[in-house]
Computed example of a mutant assay.
Amino acid sequence: MADIPQPGAKAPDFTLPRDGGASVSLKDYAGKKLVIYFYPKANTPGCTKEAIAFNGLRAQFSAADTAILGVSGDPVTAQDKFKAKYELDFPLGSDETHAMLEAYGVWGEKSMYGKTFMGVSRVTLLVGRDGTVAQVWPKVKVDGHAEEVLEAAKALG
């Protein structure tokens, strides 16, 4: 598995199926700033709280010329339900093959309650207009995170 891309590195290219049956690619955001936030599982408490926080700030992200993309290993049907239930107004990518998740270093061994399993780490990247990683949040704590990412996106210019 690759490491999480660090600031200054080119963001790994990707094309994923997304909610609504379309696809989403890194090239779709050429010339824009992009927040890619990886989350473990749709409709779980932390992931729901994080999605709602980003969604609540979407107008401010848009004003900062910054798009938002959520990505997990959930199937498209789960992404569709999650997006509809919480009225999320940004795309949710589905990486059931884990190819993109591995390229971004966010798929790996996790443990909870003494049990070890493979899963998605809660990581956020801010990609600049030139396609390079501007900032990384490797161990996201949900409270206040979307606001912190927004401030970084504004500062990126």
Rank of each mutant, 00 (worst) to 15 (best):
L126P: 00
F14H: 02
P40I: 05
Y104R: 04
L92P: 00
F82R: 03
G93V: 04
A67M: 11
K32N: 13
P17N: 10
K33Q: 12
P45H: 10
P17Y: 11
M100P: 01
D89A: 15
E148F: 04
K83F: 05
P138D: 11
Q135V: 06
A22T: 15
G144A: 08
T15H: 09
P17D: 12
A99R: 12
K110D: 12
P91R: 07
K83P: 01
V76S: 08
F82S: 02
V140A: 04
K115P: 04
L125M: 11
Y29K: 08
D3Y: 13
L34H: 00
F90L: 09
D130K: 11
A134Y: 04
A2L: 09
G119P: 07
Y39D: 00
R58W: 05
T66K: 03
F90I: 09
D3A: 15
E96S: 13
K32P: 05
V149E: 00
Y86V: 07
V127C: 05
V106H: 00
T132A: 12
A59N: 13
L16V: 05
V142E: 05
S62G: 15
V76Y: 07
G144N: 09
V127H: 01
K49Y: 11
S25G: 09
L57W: 01
T77V: 15
G46F: 04
R58K: 15
A146W: 02
D3G: 15
L69H: 04
Q60R: 12
A134G: 06
A64F: 07
L34C: 06
P138A: 13
Y86E: 10
Y39M: 03
T77G: 15
E147H: 08
M112W: 13
P7S: 12
F54L: 06
E147I: 06
L88D: 00
A99C: 10
K33Y: 04
A67Q: 14
Q60N: 12
V120E: 00
K32D: 08
A11L: 08
L16Q: 02
S121V: 07
T15V: 14
Q79I: 07
E102W: 06
G144H: 09
G56E: 06
Y29D: 06
F54P: 00
T132V: 14
L34G: 00
A51G: 09
Y39W: 05
P75T: 11
F90T: 03
S111L: 09
T66Y: 04
S72K: 07
L156T: 02
R18H: 09
P138Q: 10
V140Y: 03
Y104K: 08
A78T: 15
I4L: 05
K33N: 07
K10C: 09
L16E: 01
F90E: 03
L156W: 02
G31H: 08
A22I: 14
G93P: 01
W137K: 03
M1K: 13
G56M: 07
K85L: 14
F61S: 04
G114A: 11
L57I: 05
I68M: 09
I52H: 03
S23C: 10
V123N: 02
T97F: 04
P45M: 09
L156Y: 03
A152S: 10
V140R: 00
G46Q: 03
Y113P: 06
A146D: 04
I4K: 01
R129N: 08
